[in-house]
């Protein structure tokens, strides 16, 4: 039964990543409409959201091919952080902060796909700190 939960959890996590990527896309479309960011920054942000979606795709694959227990345990703490990011990202005025969130989440995604528990823990801690520092 544990394996099923792990598989489900990774799949849900992929959904969370997709949701955050959507919110980030909304964010950058809003900022470019208001001319608060340059076209270059707008495109850079697009690359970040693409990276996040790519990670979500790989997680869906990983969920189908089953994930290891150690990895699953390492990422169980993520749920609250994701909620926090989702709720705050669209209200962020500081563009750099939005970049940092998405960048850190992208790195975390990659370490999950690599099934690297140590890197997962490091990235989760880094994200936690970012969330604590929050939000302007």
């Amino acid at each position: 039964m544990k394996e099923r939960l792990d598989s489900e959890y990774i799949s849900q996590l992929a959904d969370e990543f997709l949701e955050i990527a959507k919110k980030f896309n909304d964010y950058r479309f809003e900022k470019i409409s208001q001319q608060k960011i340059s076209h270059e920054t707008f495109l850079d942000m697009g690359k970040k959201s693409t990276q996040l979606m790519k990670t979500a795709r790989e997680m869906k694959l990983l969920s189908t091919l089953i994930v290891g227990e150690e990895t699953a345990t390492a990422i169980l703490k993520l749920e609250n952080i994701n909620k926090e990011i989702k709720s705050s990202i669209t209200s962020l005025i500081d563009i750099q902060k939005a970049f940092d969130f998405i960048g850190a989440l992208g790195d975390l995604g990659l370490s999950i796909i690599d099934k690297n528990p140590a890197a997962i823990s490091d990235n989760i801690n880094f994200l936690s700190d970012l969330v604590k520092e929050k939000t302007s």
Binding site: S11, A56, T64
Partner: peptide
């Protein structure tokens, strides 16, 4: 969750 999930990611 996963195959349909891939469709959703593709759409975004």
């Amino acid at each position: 969750e996963n195959l349909s999930g891939l469709l959703a990611i593709q759409e975004e």
